[in-house]
């Protein structure tokens, strides 16, 4: 999939993922997140930013974004806590894509839902891709 060939408004196929306790352990170890809800135990939830990061990484891989891609801006909205093992469904749309000063600026918006269709979170990421 070539980002340069996609028009704003393009919708990507829905994808599904979930976090295991090991996934959360790895994220928490990497970020050093000491917030109480990230700690192991039955009250544990997926760190909200881990959900957003997973969506962004999926888009980077799907679009095969070039190596020099830089993250320019990020918006997030968190609506419901996500527990380990819960299936998350993500719908992503290319909101904007244009070339300026030799680089492509692209914004992708993702909405995350659970299996019952409840919205869990939303994200909008703007990246700068070498044209």
């Amino acid at each position: 999939m070539n980002l340069g060939e996609l028009q704003a408004g393009h919708r990507f196929p829905r994808y599904q993922f979930s976090f295991t306790d090991s996934d959360i352990d790895a994220y928490v170890a990497a970020t050093g997140d000491l917030s109480p809800s990230a700690a192991p135990g039955h009250h544990r939830i997926v760190p909200p930013m881990a959900l957003i990061a997973a969506g962004l990484s999926h888009m980077i891989q799907l679009l095969g974004l070039s190596a020099g891609t830089v993250h320019a801006g990020q918006e997030c909205e968190f609506l419901l806590p996500v527990r380990p093992g819960v299936a998350v469904f993500a719908d992503t749309e290319l909101v904007a894509s244009s070339v300026r000063r030799g680089s492509r600026f692209a914004t992708v918006a993702t909405q995350f839902f659970d299996a019952r269709g409840q919205k869990l979170a939303a994200s909008s990421s703007t990246v700068i891709v070498p044209a």
Binding site: I45, P48, G73, Q74, E75, C76, F78, L79, L80, P81
Partner: peptide, 9 residues
Amino acid sequence: WPTTGRLKV
């Protein structure tokens, strides 16, 4: 934060 948080940076 996990249920009402919003962030724009």
